[in-house]
Simulated scan of single mutants.
Amino acid sequence: MKNLKFTHSIRSGFDKTLRTKVNNYFEKNNISRYGNGNMIVKTVIMLSIFFIPLIFIGSGMVENTALLFTLYITSGFGMAGVGMGVMHDAIHGSYSKSRAVNRYLGYTMNLIGANSDVWKIQHNVLHHTYTNIEEGDDDINVPFFLRFSPHAKHYWIHRFQYLYVWLFYGLSTISWITLKDFVRACRYNKMGFFDRKSSFTKELLKIAVWKIIYYSYALFLPLIMVPLPAYIVVLAFLGMHFVTGICISLVFQTAHIVPGTEFIHADKKGQIHNEWTLHQLATTSNYAPKSTLFSWLIGGLNFQVEHHLFPNICHVHYKKLSGIVSRTAKEYNLPYNVKKSFFEALLDHIKMLRQLGIQQI
């Protein structure tokens, strides 16, 4: 990856004005930027939806194939809820003012099979800093058979990606809990992200141990306890992850890979000629801003603009902040991308995949 850097030649004043208004909002209303009782309730609910079905499965009381699939898939929705509504804020440090609380709740990422340390680099550092920038944002650095940026190399197979991408979205968390964390950890180590004072072998061992713990209760125990053929248990386990992969992929991808968002290409020196805050506005889109229940279920990630501008603020505040951000963007004549519904965002995502598959944009 190039040594990417935002230039400081552009000073719009937007960033300073916006942050002043947001600070005033919290001070005037005497509320914390972190989570509240709503977050605690959500944490209990999402962890319960994830763990309770697995407890039933592991107890050996499930003897029916349909019930096994139902429980695993229910757990899959819980897994997605934990990922989007609990660990996401915790790893950003916005769940609680306490670093210890954030750290321990961040481990819920490990409990659902992935790794919090790798995710923090991929998401917090690379995606949030270099959103939609080729070679910088790991969310668009995908295998050759997918093309998520107009600056990526084009192959003939990309013209069909809007048809087959759903399979890979569904398989994304299977890849995550098996090889992807190890592959990315090795790459991030070469990039200098891991502490040079500690042994990288030790880091890989920690990743492996967490995955063994996850597989032990999510797959190995059911294989021992469920009185059904092993292939049925494995298929149900894969079904759980397919549901999780689809949910998480669609929530994140419909915020960036849609018409109206920009895909930036750094110059030969790695310079990005824009202010970071303006870059986030240009590369991110909201959707379904009026859907309270949907927003609750997906951890406020329908307000991606606010999340990218204020990742250190808990998502329970994003709906209120969206009015401040949109009005300030209008004041400075800046884009504020938003789709009325998730369905509209999804259709636009498909449209963008088709466009990326047939031409340069």
Rank of each mutant, 00 (worst) to 15 (best):
W156D: 14
K21P: 07
H88A: 11
Y336W: 04
T201H: 08
M46N: 14
V183Q: 10
G83M: 10
V101T: 05
A100F: 03
P53E: 13
K21Q: 14
F342D: 02
K120E: 06
K180L: 01
Y287W: 13
N29D: 05
P150L: 06
R184I: 03
K42P: 11
W166S: 08
S198G: 03
E27H: 03
G85K: 04
K5W: 10
W176P: 15
I49L: 08
V258K: 11
I57P: 01
V243I: 12
H308I: 02
K97I: 13
F303E: 12
T178M: 14
G260F: 12
G60Y: 14
I213Y: 06
I177N: 13
L228T: 12
E331I: 01
V233D: 03
N141L: 07
D15C: 02
Y231A: 09
S94T: 11
I174A: 06
E135I: 04
R354P: 10
V209G: 08
I313D: 11
G76S: 08
T131E: 11
T20A: 00
P227N: 10
L54W: 15
W166E: 05
F148S: 13
Y164G: 06
G239S: 11
F148D: 11
T7R: 04
V165C: 15
A90P: 06
I177H: 15
K197Y: 04
F294H: 02
T74F: 06
F242W: 14
A100H: 03
N38V: 10
P150M: 07
Y164H: 06
R19C: 04
H273D: 15
I264P: 01
E275F: 07
E344N: 05
F145M: 10
S75I: 13
K16C: 03
N110V: 12
I133G: 09
I157A: 06
N29F: 04
A218K: 14
N274G: 03
L223T: 10
K97F: 03
I358D: 01
F160W: 14
D15T: 06
H128K: 01
I174Y: 13
I257Q: 10
V234Q: 00
E203I: 06
A152W: 07
I140P: 12
V101W: 01
D195H: 04
L228S: 15
F77P: 00
Q253H: 15
W176Y: 11
F193P: 02
F144K: 04
F263I: 12
Y107L: 15
Y318E: 15
K269T: 11
I140C: 14
V325N: 08
D181M: 12
A90C: 02
D15A: 03
V142E: 14
L297N: 00
